[in-house]
Nucleic acid binder design. Structure first.
Lengths: 144, 144
DNA sequence: TTTATTTAAGATAAAATTGTCTTAAATAAA
DNA sequence: TTTATTTAAGACAATTTTATCTTAAATAAA
C-alpha cells in the first residue's frame, strides 16, 4: 500500500510525537530502536519531514527530533504520506493510464473512486496526536 | 496501489476477454498494442496467468491467448491480483509490522481494516466479464 | 577554543522490480 | 518433413527503491 519509506516515516513520526508529549527530544538512534528500521535510511526520511515542517530538529549534543505539541492535532497522516510518496496513490489511475477520468475512464475507474476517497478521508482525518496517544496508552505498538 | 506487473496483467486479461467474446484468439503483440505495455514483460505476466488457469493459450501459428467464455464471470479481479502480487495488500500490516492484529495492533490498524475490506470486496465481486463488457461497449478504455 | 555529539547532505551500494533478449518447444501449413 | 509462427522459459540488463557510508555543519560542554 505505502512504500517502505512512508511506513518508516509514519512510525518515526508517531514515536517522536509520543515522546514529545513527555517533553523529550529523541535522537535518531532511539527512534529506530523503537520502530525497527534502518538508521541511515530513516534519518534521511525524517530529515525530509523536517524540511517540510512536520518535525523539528536540533543539531549537536542534547539535540534530536521533536514535534510542537500544539501542532500535533493539526498534522494529519495525509501530510506525511504525500510528503514522502506524493499524491499518486489518490490521484493516479489504478491501472496506470496516464489520464483517466469520468469522461474516458479505465475499466476499473468507478470501482476505485469510492475506495480511494475513503482512504483519503481516513488519512485526512487521522492526526499524529491521535495515533501517538494510542501508542502512549499501550493500545497500539510500533514493533514486535 | 498495484505493481506494474499487476496493472499490465489486469489490462491484458480484460483485452483478451473482450476479444474472446468475439471468438477471437489474440497474439501477445496484439495485446500490448491495445494496452500500451512492454511486450516481453507482458508475455511473462500473461504466461504466469496461463499457469494458474486464468487464461488459456495455444502455441504455434494461429495460436494465441483466449479465455473460456463461460468462465469469464467466475474469474474475479482478486484472482488476478493475488496471482501476481500475492495477498499482502489485503493481509499485511499497513505499517509493515511482521504481525499486526486486533490483540496487538499497529497505530493505524483499525483505520485500515475497513478500507482493506472494501478493497477486497470490490475485487472479489468484480468479474472479468463485467470489465470486458464495459470495454467492448466503449464505456471504458485501456489506453490513451 | 577544543572536543564530542548530533543532524544534514550527498555519494555509493545492495536489493527488488521492471524490462529485454535469446533459445527452446509446440504446432500448423506448405 | 521442412518452414514459419507463436508461446514458454530463463538468462541478462536497466531502473527504481531501499539501505549504507562518508563527510560536513551545527552546537553544547569542558
Amino acid at each position: 500500500m505505502f512504500s517502505k519509506a512512508t511506513e518508516y516515516g509514519i512510525k518515526a513520526i508517531i514515536y517522536i510525537a509520543s515522546q514529545s508529549m513527555l517533553e523529550r527530544r529523541v535522537k535518531i538512534g532511539e527512534v529506530v530502536e523503537h520502530i525497527d528500521s534502518p538508521v541511515a535510511f530513516t534519518a534521511k526520511i525524517v530529515g525530509a519531514l523536517v524540511k517540510v515542517g512536520i518535525v523539528q530538529s536540533i543539531t549537536g549534543p542534547y539535540g534530536g527530533f521533536y514535534i510542537d505539541r500544539h501542532r500535533m492535532d493539526q498534522i494529519k497522516m495525509i501530510d506525511i504520506v504525500t510528503a514522502i510518496d506524493g499524491d499518486s496513490i489518490f490521484n493516479g489511475c489504478g491501472l496506470g493510464l496516464k489520464e483517466c477520468d469520468d469522461e474516458q475512464p479505465c475499466p476499473m475507474h468507478y470501482k476505485f473512486v469510492q475506495i480511494r476517497a475513503d482512504l483519503k478521508d481516513m488519512l485526512n482525518s487521522t492526526s499524529i496526536l491521535e495515533l501517538a496517544e494510542g501508542l502512549k496508552s499501550g493500545k497500539s505498538i510500533l514493533m514486535r
